[in-house]
Amino acid sequence: MSAVPADRLLITVAPTGAETTKADCPQLPTTLEELVATAKECEAAGAAMIHVHIRDDEHRPTLDLGRLTDTVTALKESTDLVVQLSTGGSVHDPLESRLKVLDAEPDSCSLTMGTTNFGDDVFLNPWPFVCELYQLSQDRGVVPEFELFDLGQVHALNRLLERYGLPAGGKVHVDLVMGVPGGMNGTTDALVAAVRDLPAATTSWSATGIGRSTLAVMLASLSKGGHLRVGMEDVLTLSRGVPVESNAQLVQRAVEVGQLAQRTPMTPDEARSLLGLDNLR
């Protein structure tokens, strides 16, 4: 496929996450049926990639390989979305289980570039684990999305690419995760600093603002030519006191804001080209 036009906007939806409980948010998609229905709605609304966390029968976060494999299969059968599995899981998942996520054969995987204080918890990503996961993604032909929670992780990405070369597919796609208590602020200044220091090999980047930073980060990313990640993993209100009803609602808002910036939602096929998945066929 030819180069993706510069006015295209990659919208990734992160529909579930690992932090919010079903009891606190009944509209959160936690079953496979709910996740597939959400994926279809979000694709129709303008999303091109889905970032997936899964839950067990009690709606608790899990990295069960059978469930992950069934989820990837169902999403690929039901949609054209690029399927990205989280290798972060929940902050309590052991490193060994997180490495096995790639056995489910997703198109893409998240790859967080360092350890981060995550509220009262610690999201553990030691350097040897990062290196092992990256090399595994290269061997398996899974395209990583490098998740960066602070400026130190931006510089760690430079170090990783210098040591091990380009990812599978030859493209470098980054997501700036902003506004996490313990990570970089969800502000324009922080985004500009992070984008300034991205490796020269970076071919595309997106940003997501957690909670109340959602709109500020969305607008800052669009102003810098970046892409967007939205979803109920990251925010549960549209505005103060107004709960999100569905992930498709958040995708649609991203589409509308993108249109103001004269950006057109990317198709899944265009996303595959952007991310280098076309080069792995």
Rank of each mutant, 00 (worst) to 15 (best):
M1S: 14
P5H: 06
A6M: 13
A6P: 04
T12H: 01
V13P: 02
P15A: 14
G17L: 08
T20L: 13
T20S: 13
K22S: 09
D24M: 05
D24C: 02
C25K: 09
T31F: 10
E33H: 02
V36W: 11
E41S: 10
E43W: 01
E43F: 07
E43V: 00
A45R: 04
G46F: 02
A48I: 09
I50F: 11
I50L: 08
R60L: 07
T62I: 12
L63D: 03
G66N: 14
L68Y: 10
V72T: 11
T73V: 12
S78C: 09
V82I: 00
V83M: 07
G88K: 11
H92W: 15
L95Q: 15
K100Q: 15
A104Y: 00
S108R: 05
C109L: 15
G114D: 04
D121T: 07
L124N: 09
V130F: 07
C131E: 15
E132W: 04
L133E: 05
Q135L: 14
S137V: 00
Q138S: 04
G141V: 02
E145K: 06
D150W: 03
V154Q: 06
H155R: 03
A156M: 01
N158T: 08
L161K: 11
L161S: 04
E162S: 15
R163M: 02
L166R: 12
G169T: 07
L176C: 07
V177Q: 00
G182V: 03
N185A: 15
N185S: 13
A190G: 10
A190C: 05
V192I: 12
V192E: 12
A200P: 05
A200F: 09
A201V: 01
T202P: 01
S204V: 05
W205Q: 12
S206T: 08
G209V: 03
G209D: 08
G211K: 09
L219Q: 13
L219R: 07
R229M: 04
G231V: 06
G231W: 05
V235I: 05
L236N: 08
L236C: 14
L238F: 03
L238M: 15
G241W: 11
V242L: 15
P243K: 09
V244P: 10
Q249V: 08
E256P: 06
G258L: 11
Q262L: 13
R263C: 04
T267W: 07
T267A: 05
P268A: 02
E270V: 08
L275P: 04
